[in-house]
Amino acid sequence: MKQVMMPAIGAVIVLTLLSAVFANRVSASKKQTRTNNGNSFAVLELFTSEGCSSCPPADALLARIQTEAGNKPIYVLAYHVDYWNRLGWKDVFSQPQYSKRQYQYSQQLPSQVYTPQLVVNGQTSCIGSDESAVTNAIGDALGNGTTASLGIKAQLQPGKANFTYEVTGNTGNNQLLIAVVQKHAVSKVERGENEGRTLSHVQVVRDLQAFKLRDGKQGAASIHLPDGFNTQDWELIGMIQDPETGVISAAARASL
């Protein structure tokens, strides 16, 4: 790559201007976060498929984001859609309801239906393998606070989890969604566009259930858990979402 050397004086001026712009952005971001109680978060919903040759780079990018997120309020959810199944390989993680969820987003955003598509907080979307677009979307989400919050506590029972939840803020007619998430999975693809490849997945959504919020914004319910569920390899992620607009106003991991 050809490098262009900047004159020393020009470089100082440019760096000074960049520093001023960065400082202003940081200040504005902090001010906005304080105004909105600082409850910012980013829910990353990736619509993907083992039958799509463009999807593995998006899966890899989300895996890295998941690893680097640490304690940040970033929630990664990978939905394997089923409309690729007819093209030579049936994705064992795919479910019709995930395709339906993506089609619903296509009406709400609006957007086209494609893989890999990433939807952030139910409000924006981009190509899931476009690192620059994904990074910007996460930054925007974490820079915008919210007045709503969600807390979930769950107790494991044989084959199910009993949980309680508490919601604050103006949630209107929103729903509580609980995603049952398998943190890691590996699959060897024998046909289709990824024939012969061994694919690694993170944050695979194995079930997604909706619950009506009760009056008082506190309640209890239960959700079925798949065989093999354990606290090390699986987790439960909750979201407060407006079913009409698709906007997600709060999210949290369940305390197991």
Rank of each mutant, 00 (worst) to 15 (best):
Q155C: 03
P243K: 07
V181F: 01
V14E: 11
T33C: 08
C126Y: 01
R197L: 04
F163D: 07
I65P: 01
G139T: 14
W84V: 13
V76Q: 06
A42V: 04
I240R: 09
M6T: 14
G143T: 03
Y98C: 12
A210Y: 08
T33H: 10
L156H: 06
Y83G: 12
S255Q: 11
N121F: 03
T198Q: 14
A78Q: 13
I138G: 02
L61W: 09
I13K: 12
A11R: 15
N71R: 08
Q108T: 00
D227E: 14
E166V: 05
A60Q: 14
I13L: 15
P96V: 11
A28C: 01
R25M: 12
F22I: 13
S94I: 03
Q108I: 00
V134H: 09
T231I: 04
F47A: 05
V81M: 09
G216Q: 04
S19L: 15
Q232Y: 00
P226L: 02
A133H: 07
Q102P: 08
R25D: 12
V12Y: 07
Q203N: 15
Q117A: 00
W234Q: 09
P158I: 06
G145Q: 02
L87K: 02
T35I: 13
S249L: 07
A28P: 02
E193P: 13
G246E: 10
E235Q: 14
G169L: 00
S29C: 02
D215E: 14
A23D: 03
A220W: 00
G70I: 07
Q232T: 14
T164F: 01
M5C: 04
D82E: 11
N173L: 05
G219K: 09
S249R: 06
T245Y: 05
N173C: 05
